[in-house]
């Protein structure tokens, strides 16, 4: 009888330990996956790469291609992702269920050329640009049309018109820009800094964020990329999301404070674009890595989406996203 009691009691203790231990384990062992495209979006989560525990929960960050990030959101594999906001809206409209929680990048596009020129001077020239059918194309064209400067897509210069020639990536444009074959290019950070440091005669002739602010009569910068979170995670653990937002708010400062360590940090994180970049205050500030909640960024987002919608409705998913897209609204 005694033996049975002892065995039963031990079993009970074993079970409860396992049960509570298991519970505790699921709490502290729960990891979420965050996918970020290489380049500027990866900069927005620098502090997460350095310290991946937020409020007791681990966040595993994967730096990958834009296409891969997009497909992981489509398939629901990633819990969190940094995506271009218009793509986030597009996917949301198509039923992805990922909501926008914060905006993390307020634009980092610049016109780089070998001599000073104004927007009007671009007429009769060819501007090499990245981002066909995407933010760079629409933002630049909006700025040009607001300033009454005619533009056209093409390969060779035509008089009286700004000819925009599209390339697949900044990597394609840089060699041509550095050798002088291209007069003027529209590229984003960190490619801008790479170009400037490689060829000292190159300079920034236009800050598209500033120009956008002028033409939209509003704040500088446009909400280019932000954090999306799956509906499942938002339902499960909104406390974690709030803590994450707090952490990201401090990301810009973190980068400024630790500029010299960033190159190595990104390299270890798996970035290719950022591993060879010399980070300094100027570069970081040029990236406009301001974290703003979707709620606070609402007006800017709507204006931005409307501009894109007018150029190509498909770029935001053929309609403006409804209010539930913006978390916390």
């Amino acid at each position: 009888m005694k033996k049975i009691l002892v065995v039963t009691f031990s079993l009970l203790i074993l079970c409860s330990v396992l049960l509570f231990g298991g519970c505790a384990n699921t709490n502290t062992d729960k990891t979420y996956s965050l996918v970020v495209p290489d380049g500027a979006p990866a900069m927005a989560v620098a502090s997460l790469l350095a310290d991946n525990v937020v409020n007791g929960t681990k966040v595993v960050t994967t730096i990958t291609t834009g296409q891969d990030a997009q497909s992981k959101v489509l398939s629901g594999q990633a819990d969190l992702a940094i995506l271009p906001t218009n793509l986030a809206a597009n996917l949301y409209n198509k039923g992805s269920g990922y909501k926008l929680v914060t905006v993390n990048v307020y634009g980092l596009l610049y016109l780089v050329a070998s001599q000073d020129m104004s927007l009007a001077d671009l007429q009769g020239k060819v501007v090499a640009s990245i981002g066909k059918s995407n933010t760079p194309e629409y933002v630049f064209k909006k700025i040009l049309s607001d300033n009454n400067i005619p533009y056209a897509d093409g390969d060779v210069a035509q008089s009286g018109v700004v000819t925009i020639r599209y390339y697949t990536s900044a990597a394609e444009i840089l060699p041509l820009l550095l050798s002088g074959e291209i007069e003027c290019a529209l590229i984003g950070e960190p490619a801008v800094s790479k170009a400037l440091s490689a060829n000292t005669s190159l300079r920034i002739v236009a800050d598209l964020q500033q120009l956008w602010g002028n033409s939209s009569h509003g704040a500088e910068g446009y909400p280019q990329a932000g954090l999306v979170v799956s509906q499942k995670l938002l339902d499960e653990n909104s406390a974690f999301v709030d803590s994450l937002v707090q952490r990201l708010m401090g990301n810009n400062q973190y980068m400024l404070d630790n500029a010299d360590k960033l190159g190595k940090l990104f390299e270890e994180g798996g970035s290719q674009e950022l591993s060879s970049v010399a980070f300094d205050k100027t570069l970081i500030q040029r990236c406009n890595l301001n974290t703003v909640t979707a709620k606070d960024a609402y007006n800017g987002l709507v204006q931005y989406f409307e501009t894109l919608y007018n150029f190509n409705a498909a770029s935001v998913g053929n309609k403006m996203p409804d209010n539930s897209f913006y978390y916390g609204l």
């Binding site: 489509l74 597009n90 066909k132 059918s133 498909a314």
Partner: peptide, 9 residues
């Protein structure tokens, strides 16, 4: 095709 891909269509 490229545009369709970019816009997830």
């Amino acid at each position: 095709m490229q545009n369709a891909r970019l816009n997830v269509e």
